[in-house]
Design a binder for these strands. Sequence first.
DNA 1: ATCCCGAGGG
DNA 2: CCCTCTGGAT
Length: 220
Amino acid sequence: MPVILSGDRVRQVVATLEDTYPDAAPELDFSNPFELVIAVMLSAQCTDVRVNLVTHELFARYPDAQSLASANIEDVESIIRTCGLYRNKSRNAIAASQMIVDRFCGEVPASREELQQLPGIGRKSANVILSCAMSQDAIAVDTHVYRVSRRIGLSDASTVLGVEKDLMDATPRKKWSQLHHLLIFHGRRCCKAHKPQCQTCTVAHLCGYNASRNKSSSAR
DNA sequence: ATCCCGAGGG
DNA sequence: CCCTCTGGAT
């Protein structure tokens, strides 16, 4: 039985998480749109620490879309090899750069629809780019945001789009980006997929998921 | 073993 | 909905 929080309780959850994670911020810290496009693309199934390492080397050699567009794919592969899925990522990074150059006149497009035309950029990555490098308000729903939102009752939707909409409806536009990072931090540090740390969770008292876990564990 | 702030394709 | 692509960290 899902628990949908009222506006007041949403604010309470956000305020509590804000207090819990005062340093919540994107770990992929690129304000240059092109760099963020590539960094986000590389981040699938890979830690951000590693993305920061390989992008440092990658951008030293290919600083912009023009140079990466004409890069040798084997060179790109050798640079990003250690972050997994490297064949797809290399092909996509080059193809996306080429598309930026000859379809978008060398500028990273600033709409979600256009960003999603870039190979390797889906809805989640497009929203990250918009909110972190384009000063646009968007909520990127990744696996953490999805899982945490459903557990603590910010949404009972069963699709990424549904959760995204519920979060946008429940939160003032100017707080979307912050909410996104708070939920990711909470999902990584506490509200984990398999062993959630409900004992130390600062919003457990607001959380129906925690209540149902307590009930089922004390019942056996 | 299991998980990483996914995307594309069937 | 499902599956596959990948190496590294824990």
